[in-house]
Amino acid sequence: MTALPQYNFAYLDEQTKRMIRRAILKAIAIPGYQVPFSSREMPMPYGWGTGGVQVTASIIGPDDVLKVIDQGADDTTNAVSIRAFFAKVAQVQTTTHTAEASIIQTRHRIPEKPLTEGQVLVYQVPIPEPLRFLEPRETETRKMHALEEYGLMHVKLYEDIARHGRIATTYAYPVKVEGRYVMDPSPTPKFDNPKMHMSPALQLFGAGREHRIYAVPPYTEVVSLDFEDHPFEIQHFAEPCALCGATEVYLDEVILDDRGGHMFVCSDTDNCEERRQAGHVGSLGTGREAAE
């Protein structure tokens, strides 16, 4: 038998961490610009957060407290899996509470509770290139970014308006960072876009399969693309969370039967639980016990 494999702190070897760290520093210095990096194989499949995991593995230290969410929830399987991975390979403390975390790795959501200075939000990104669906070729999109040639994106959004009467992009809604780079916010619902603007937290984005890292430093302008006659709007829900009664939060639809029965509940499980513990009750919630 061969010897048991040995893994470094936070799984990645030091040379890989250095390479990723250098990319992160450049990303912070050029907000919204996608820094190419030589993404490594991870012990989980591409598309499952390898970019985010590589970023987290490169920044995390023993004093960090890590929170991992997927679709807003701490208890989704992929979030549990990634959290367990870091608890194992970096022996860090983990939490589900947004306020307690120093690093939050996320897939598809930004927590409802406002982030604070010193926190780092690490996004898992599948397709980092916001222009990819207008122009599949990397050589072309690189040119477009270099020349700040974003007309095509506006044409696409305007075609939406012509066809559907509105901009039909509901997630991965493109933003402009600090007035320069058009950036993909990862497939978060556009509901979360305003949270990116002037956030006190550092936002890092990792796309493993596509070999890109980008960043939005704290207190940086992040503006969702729109038109004067069709200003950017976020989603609004007709009913509050059925468990905690929250409004102005992002909700998941849960099907209750096959006759059209359904309810809406908070996508951010931590925020929902905290609200219920504070005594908020929705139409189907029973307060504290429901959170257990």
Partner: peptide, 27 residues
């Protein structure tokens, strides 16, 4: 597409969420 639905979600015998770390213990 739906967090919960009639019949529920069932992971079954899947590689998903396994960490791809070679495991000599399966031998």
């Amino acid at each position: 597409t739906f967090k919960d639905l009639p019949g529920g979600q069932m992971l079954g015998p899947t590689f998903d969420y396994t960490h791809r770390l070679l495991d000599p213990n399966i031998v």
